[in-house]
């Protein structure tokens, strides 16, 4: 078996609520190889962040409950690791960029103090570093994210920086020591569009340069199109479609993916789409069938009672939808295509 850098298998992450367990992440499978770039796309509240926070185990353990699943990092199960092993992974192998740059930095410590802490605990060669070395490493990292006058920035408190600068600092912090995997959780969401674009380009340039694998979480297909090689489409805690970026844009199969595509405004006009009808489902009492079935325009009886499995439609393109299984008869598909044309 070939070794993946990160291999998430049937991960379930639930939250304890007063009504019962909210089954937010419901059997996610995901793999990424060293140096690759993948994107996870889905709407707010579909469990993207929860999945990734499960990887680093930074969820509040009194609220989160992981009944099933494995997260293998280089064939070691992170979920079964002892605290010391986990700390090593957090310090040396994986880092994560939060979607809220303003909240991710501690307001009462200088940027420098916070970066120094990250460097000194993630030291690769296990030698103690003095202040001068720490400063040099931090300054180089800040320079890498194109912030002028890094010496001054180190003395600054987060509230003295703009949102875009804070996010750059977060990126600098995440890549200040070499990592094998960088998880970027909607790094541009809290920023305005021009800054967002800069941040994405910067991120791409840095992971290419440092040959870090990247998991990019976003709610916008447009964002990941230029950044990643492979896209996972997530809906309500399930991966519903996986394909390479080109294939997905050329041939989106899952009704939800199509809905997302329609939501991207086009330069060619045609107005803004109506969106996808309905809401993300209730996680405490989820439907036994396909979680998209209440919103799906092509819903059939089987969709409501049975969960569709991931099915490889073509090389490297899998989808979880009954429309592409054999039980879904040719006749159904014809009816649909007539309906679509009408």
């Amino acid at each position: 078996m070939n070794e993946h850098l990160l291999d998430i298998r049937n991960l379930k992450t639930w939250y304890r609520t007063y009504q019962g367990y909210a089954q937010v992440v419901d059997g996610v499978n995901l793999t990424i190889d060293a140096g690759k770039k993948i994107g996870i796309v889905g709407e707010s509240g579909c469990g993207k962040t929860t999945t990734m926070k499960s990887v680093l185990r930074v969820l509040d353990e009194r609220k989160a409950y992981l009944p099933e699943g494995e997260i293998l990092f280089k064939n070691q199960n992170i979920l079964k690791m002892r605290e010391t092993e986990l700390q090593q992974i957090r310090r040396k192998n994986i880092s994560m960029i939060s979607q809220e740059p303003s909240a991710a930095l501690n307001p009462v410590f200088t940027v420098g103090q916070q970066i120094f802490d990250v460097i000194s605990y993630s030291k690769q060669d296990d030698t103690a570093k003095n202040k001068k070395e720490l400063t040099d490493i931090a300054i180089k990292a800040i320079r890498d994210v194109f912030i002028p006058d890094p010496e001054r920035i180190l003395e600054c408190y987060p509230h003295q920086l703009s949102g875009g600068m804070k996010q750059r600092i977060c990126i600098a912090m995440a890549l200040v020591t070499p990592r094998e995997l960088l998880i970027a959780d909607e790094p541009g969401t809290a920023l305005d569009v021009t800054i967002q674009d800069q941040i994405h380009r910067l991120l791409r340039a840095l992971v290419d340069e440092k040959q870090t694998a990247l998991i990019m979480i976003t709610h916008s297909l447009g964002v990941v199109r230029e950044l990643v090689d492979q896209i996972y489409v997530m809906y309500a805690g399930n991966i519903v479609e996986v394909a390479t970026t080109n294939e997905l844009f050329k041939n989106p199969l899952h009704p939800y993916t199509r809905g997302l595509m329609d939501c991207v405004p086009r330069l060619s006009g045609g107005g803004i789409s109506a969106g996808i009808y309905g809401y993300v489902p209730d996680y405490v009492h989820p439907t036994p069938g396909c979680r998209f079935s209440p919103r799906c325009p092509y819903v059939k009886e089987i969709c409501r009672v049975q969960k569709p499995l991931m099915l490889e439609v073509s090389e490297g393109h899998t989808v979880a939808c009954f429309r592409y299984t054999d039980s879904f008869t040719e006749q159904h598909r014809q009816e649909e295509s007539i309906g679509e044309r009408a």
């Binding site: 090593q88 957090r90 880092s95 501690n106 307001p107 410590f109 990250v118 605990y121 993630s122």
Partner: peptide
């Protein structure tokens, strides 16, 4: 968020409690 970020960077919980949490 900054506490979970600090945790995610593998800072020891002692450091997080006494430095990152206590002061604010």
């Amino acid at each position: 968020e900054y506490i979970s970020v600090a945790t995610g960077y593998g800072l020891p919980s002692r450091v997080i409690m006494t430095r990152y949490l206590l002061r604010p």
